[in-house]
């Protein structure tokens, strides 16, 4: 990389770049700053740059997990802490399940020639377009009256797995196609069964695809609101649901709500910085060939 040369650009170009970066991350920065402010500072008219940063809003939100008692709190409200636990469990479990069964299905679709493969591909592509809002009514009805799993984490996990599967299958297909078939044949010659070939040969080769797919899956499960709102009860609410619930009150506590928003935003932000290349691959797969 160090030998690469870069073209010189004129200053106006760099000014534009800076403006774009400010526009892109300005709102996020503003949220971070607000979450570090006391309400007095948020309400004041004076310049927003001079204030004492405080972690008090985060203490309020996370009071359940703290080993000490924040002195500004009279009573700890465990709602957010509970929601954070729920969100983590639901996000991680649904991502794990989706990936395991999604990779297996994608592998079968790519490698084994059997009837109906094209049909399955078209269906997965079409299912990808189903918006959560469309599933709201039937999922609510079925989960409540037929499966009896409304209000449980398992019920929410099941929706998310179903919602993410088509995309995961679709994206992993494009990675599995690139695995040279000779490798698999060699393994089979050496006496490996189909499951061994899959887990020991194919899986390690498509790690980048799996990384991209797991980020997208986790993100959907972590960020989704509508279905979680319809299915969750008091004990299985996720973070987005609690945020929206606390918004409906008239007097919004901006500091605390921005702190919760920031906590909800942190995992996706970390993923973006760690794996931006995989994310871009995932986004461009299908639309841009090559």
């Amino acid at each position: 990389m160090s030998t690469q040369t870069y073209d010189r650009q004129n200053p106006a170009f760099y000014a534009l770049l800076i403006a774009l970066v400010v526009m892109a991350i300005g709102p996020i920065y503003l949220m971070l700053v607000t979450s570090l402010k006391l309400n007095v500072d948020i309400m004041s008219d004076s310049s927003s740059l001079l204030f004492m940063p405080t972690l008090r809003n985060y203490e309020t939100a996370l009071c359940d997990f703290l080993w000490y008692e924040p002195e500004h709190l009279r009573r700890c409200d465990p709602t957010f802490g509970r929601a954070l636990t729920n969100s983590l469990i639901i996000g991680l479990v649904s991502t794990a399940i989706t990936l395991v069964i999604g990779t297996m299905a994608a592998y079968a679709l790519v490698r084994f020639r059997f009837m109906g493969r094209d049909v399955v591909s078209i269906w997965t592509l079409m299912m990808r377009m189903v918006p959560p809002a469309v599933l709201l009514v039937p999922v609510f009805g079925i989960w409540t009256f037929q499966f009896g799993i409304d209000g449980t984490r398992g019920g929410i996990i099941l929706v998310y797995v179903a919602l993410n599967l088509p995309f995961v299958i679709w994206i992993l297909q494009s990675f599995i196609v690139q695995v040279p078939i000779q490798l698999e044949e060699a393994a089979r010659m050496d006496g490996a069964g189909p499951f061994q070939v899959f887990f020991l040969v194919v899986l390690p080769l498509i790690k980048p695809g799996i990384a991209a797919a797991s980020i997208f899956t986790f993100r959907v499960a972590w960020n989704e609101f509508l279905l979680a709102n319809a299915l969750a009860d008091r004990n299985s609410r996720t973070v987005p649901v609690t945020i929206v619930n606390s918004l409906t009150e008239f007097d919004i506590d901006w500091g605390v709500i921005m702190a919760t928003g920031m906590l909800l935003a942190i995992p996706p932000i970390i993923f973006t910085f760690v794996a931006s290349r995989q994310i871009i691959t995932g986004m461009t797969a299908g639309a841009v060939k090559g």
Partner: peptide, 24 residues
């Protein structure tokens, strides 16, 4: 590449949070 990374951020963050930021 840094620029592209920063540009993806708005898409990765929860829509709920995006709404929250803009409402604020």
């Amino acid at each position: 590449s840094v620029l592209r990374t920063l540009f993806i951020l708005p898409m990765m963050i929860a829509p709920i949070v995006v709404g929250l930021m803009w409402r604020y």
